[in-house]
Measured scan of single mutants.
Amino acid sequence: MLDDRARMEAAKKEKVEQILAEFQLQEEDLKKVMRRMQKEMDRGLRLETHEEASVKMLPTYVRSTPEGSEVGDFLSLDLGGTNFRVMLVKVGEGEEGQWSVKTKHQMYSIPEDAMTGTAEMLFDYISECISDFLDKHQMKHKKLPLGFTFSFPVRHEDIDKGILLNWTKGFKASGAEGNNVVGLLRDAIKRRGDFEMDVVAMVNDTVATMISCYYEDHQCEVGMIVGTGCNACYMEEMQNVELVEGDEGRMCVNTEWGAFGDSGELDEFLLEYDRLVDESSANPGQQLYEKLIGGKYMGELVRLVLLRLVDENLLFHGEASEQLRTRGAFETRFVSQVESDTGDRKQIYNILSTLGLRPSTTDCDIVRRACESVSTRAAHMCSAGLAGVINRMRESRSEDVMRITVGVDGSVYKLHPSFKERFHASVRRLTPSCEITFIESEEGSGRGAALVSAVACKKACMLGQ
C-alpha cells in the first residue's frame, strides 16, 4: 500500500517536472537572447534605426563620474514606483581627507489618484512632500541643488532636461508624456511658492545606482535594477552614441532593455503563462523582457503555473481556492519566502493557508518547484541581457580580458534567497573573457542622484555659470 502511494507521488512529481521543464533555458538559448539583445542595442544607438529599435539606448548626458572633490548639501528625489523618497545628502571631506556622503531620508507613498490623475496632481503632491521634508529638517530658507531620480523612459536633451516617452509600472498621470519632466517639477514648486529649489540633474535609477557604486569602486561602469521592473545602464564610447554629437570619451546610456521583445525577438521563448500575464497587464505587448524578470510579474506567473497544475490534477487534489483564482493573489514576496523555507515546509504551508488552501507535504514541495522554475528562468533571462552589455563593452574597448564592476539594486536581487547566485553564475558562463565584480548599492537611487548633481554643480562652477 505504502509502495503504491510512494509510486503515485513519484509519478505525480515526474509529471510536474515535465510541465515545469518549459521554463528551462539551455545555454544556447541564452546565447541567442544575448546576441539578439546586442543587435537591438546597436539599432538603438544608431541614428537611422533608433526610432524602430525596441531597446532605445537613451543617452543620459552623464559623462563624468564623481571624483571626490564636490562638497555641499544636496536634496535628492526618487520616483520610480508607488513609494517616493526625499533625501538630504551631505557631501563633504571625511576623516583623513576621505570623501564622505551622509544621508537623511523619508519615504512617502503615492496615492492612487496622483498616479493615475493628471501630471499637475502628481507633481503638486511631490512638491508637497518636499515642503514637508524641508519643514522637518528646518531647511526651507536654503535654496538647495536638487537631483531627481526618475525611473521611467526619458529622452534627455541635457542633464536637466528630459522628455517622458511613456509611463510604465502602473503610472498613468495624463499630460506628462511628451513633456519635460524637470519643467513639470519646477512648475509645481513655483505653484507652491513656499520654498526654492535648483533642479540641476535628472537621472534614471540605473544611472543613480551606477554612480553610487562608483563611489565604492571606481571600476563600476554598469548599473542595473532588478526590482519591480528590470533595466540597466553602462558607459558607452561616445563615438557609438549617434544621437549625441561628439566622439570623445564616454557617456552613460540608459538601455531601457525592459522593452526588448516588443518587436518579436522573444516570441519563441514566451510561454502561455507569459501571454496571460501580458494580456492582463496595463501595457499589453510592451516591456516583454521586463515581464519575464521583474517583481511586478513574478508572483503572478507562479500563480498561473499553480492553476495549470491544479487543472492537471497534480496539486491540491485538483481544487483551487477562490483566493488562488484571484489575479495578483500570489505576491512576489511569497516566491522569495517559499524558496527561503528551511525544509520543514512550515513557511510554505503558512503562505498557502493564507490563500485558503490546506496543502499536503507533496503540495508544498511542488509549489516550491514552481517558484524555483519561474525565478530561475528570470535570473537566466536577466543574465543574457547583462552578458550582452558586458561583452559589447569588452569588444568596443578591444580588451582581451576586461575587469568590470556592476552596481545592482532592486528588491528581487536583494531579497530573493537564490536569485543573485543563479544570476551571477549564468552571467559568468556567458562572459568567459571578463572578470566581473557585483556590488549592491546602498540607498543607491538617492545618493547617486545627489552625486550626479554634485558633478553638475562642479561643472557649472568651472564653466562660470
Rank of each mutant, 00 (worst) to 15 (best):
D3I: 02
K12S: 15
E14K: 11
K31Y: 11
K32G: 04
M34D: 03
D42S: 09
L47D: 15
K56M: 03
P59S: 01
T60E: 00
L77P: 00
G80W: 10
F84T: 04
V89Y: 04
G92V: 04
Q98T: 09
S100D: 07
V101M: 11
T103F: 06
T103A: 13
K104Q: 04
M107W: 04
E112D: 12
G117H: 04
M121I: 13
I126E: 06
S127P: 08
C129S: 07
L134H: 05
H141F: 11
K142H: 10
K142M: 09
T149V: 14
F150K: 14
S151I: 04
S151K: 12
S151C: 13
S151N: 13
R155S: 15
E157C: 15
I163V: 12
F171E: 15
F171K: 15
A176S: 01
E177W: 09
N179I: 06
R186F: 07
D187Q: 07
R191H: 12
M197I: 10
V199Y: 02
V203M: 01
T209H: 04
M210Q: 09
Y215W: 01
G223W: 01
I225M: 03
Q239D: 09
Q239H: 01
E245K: 00
G246T: 09
D247H: 01
D247R: 02
C252Q: 00
G261R: 00
G261E: 03
S263N: 10
D267N: 14
F269S: 02
L271N: 09
P284W: 11
Q287K: 15
L288C: 15
I293V: 08
G295R: 10
L301H: 14
R303T: 03
L304D: 06
L304S: 05
R308S: 06
V310R: 07
L314D: 08
G318R: 11
T326G: 09
Q337H: 05
T342G: 02
I348C: 08
L357F: 05
I366R: 04
A370M: 02
S373I: 11
T376E: 06
T376I: 03
R377P: 00
R377H: 02
S383G: 14
R394A: 14
D409Y: 03
V412S: 09
E442R: 05
G444D: 07
G444V: 07
S453H: 15
A454K: 14
K458A: 15
A460F: 15
